[in-house]
């Protein structure tokens, strides 16, 4: 019983950590209509950007998260402008945008190697104290994991406020909902695309650095969580931000709960099972509107 409760606590915290990059992935999909797999690379570069600010400039880890946002956002915009935008233009409406998706997989490999070239493979750590778990009854909770979840929550709230209450956010939603209509209204879709890409890259970078807090930093950081992140976004429904959050909790909880019944070595397989179950019931995910 306690084991189950503990798995739920762990799963919720793991889900919160997954949610940030999953939102990044789904935001790009919502606005630009393609799966940008390079979010894994944005997470890695963001984590390194924050690390430079934290360890080289001596800025405390939490404010240094801004460095991660800037690095991740910049990486996202550069990759999009240089490698993906041209391919996106060739996609006919209604068609799945596979060429930019493939290019983004290649971009992930490229970014991983940019990090490797600049920083090497040696594991790096943030200048951040570590805490013992708090014990609440029989349950253990990590203060750092709680703080990470709180930071994730702040970032998500900021995104919701941005989308709901700013002009740029509203135009972004308009483009996401109906690109044709938005174009008629004279909205500059390219500019909106850039803002969305930057915002998503910033979130991915933030998510990457939060992962780095609990692990150690190396060029494969983003790659390690990639499959769970994509699983979360797909479960929730590509293009739906609330869906990505829900999906992240489904995958996070699923992976932790599964360790109670299956060999922990198969945790990743649980994400995949979650996708199959959800998609066989709802082919466009939990919150997805667009069907096949």
């Amino acid at each position: 019983m306690i084991a189950i409760a503990q798995a739920i606590v762990n799963g919720v915290l793991a889900g919160a950590a997954l949610a940030v990059p999953a939102i990044a992935f789904t935001t790009i999909f919502a606005v630009l209509r393609f799966a940008n797999f390079a979010v894994a690379g944005f997470a890695t570069l963001g984590a390194y950007g924050g690390w430079l600010v934290n360890t080289r400039l001596g800025v405390p880890a939490v404010p240094a998260l801004l460095g991660a946002c800037v690095a991740g956002g910049a990486a996202a915009v550069i990759v999009d402008e240089a490698a993906l935008k041209g391919l996106r233009r060739r996609i006919r409406p209604g068609e799945a945008a596979l060429a930019p998706a493939i290019a983004s997989v290649a971009a992930t490999l490229l970014l991983e190697n940019v990090a490797r070239f600049l920083f090497g493979n040696d594991p790096q750590g943030y200048d951040l104290p570590v805490f013992r778990d708090w014990h609440i009854g029989a349950l253990a909770v990590g203060p750092q994991q709680l703080a990470d979840a709180a930071i994730a929550l702040v970032a998500m709230t900021a995104l919701f406020l941005f989308l709901g209450f700013t002009r740029a956010g509203r135009t972004m939603r308009a483009v996401a909902d109906n690109p044709g209509l938005a174009a008629l209204k004279g909205i500059d879709a390219a500019r909106v695309g850039r803002i969305a890409t930057f915002a998503a890259g910033a979130l991915a970078g933030l998510g990457g650095m939060l992962i780095g807090f609990d692990t150690s930093l190396d060029p494969l950081l983003g790659f390690r969580v990639m499959l769970s992140v994509f699983a979360a976004a797909v479960v929730g429904g590509l293009g739906s931000i609330p869906g990505a959050v829900a999906g992240a909790f489904v995958v996070g909880l699923g992976e932790e709960m599964a360790t109670l019944v299956v060999d922990p070595a198969y945790r990743t397989a649980v994400g995949f099972a979650a996708i199959l179950i959800v998609l066989s019931l709802r082919p466009a995910g939990l919150f997805g509107e667009r069907t096949a």
Partner: peptide, 15 residues
């Protein structure tokens, strides 16, 4: 316990 080395948290295994 044998774990999957590519994960980013082993809290459950450690517990």
């Amino acid at each position: 316990t044998i774990y999957d080395g590519s994960k980013t948290s082993f809290r459950t295994e450690v517990e």
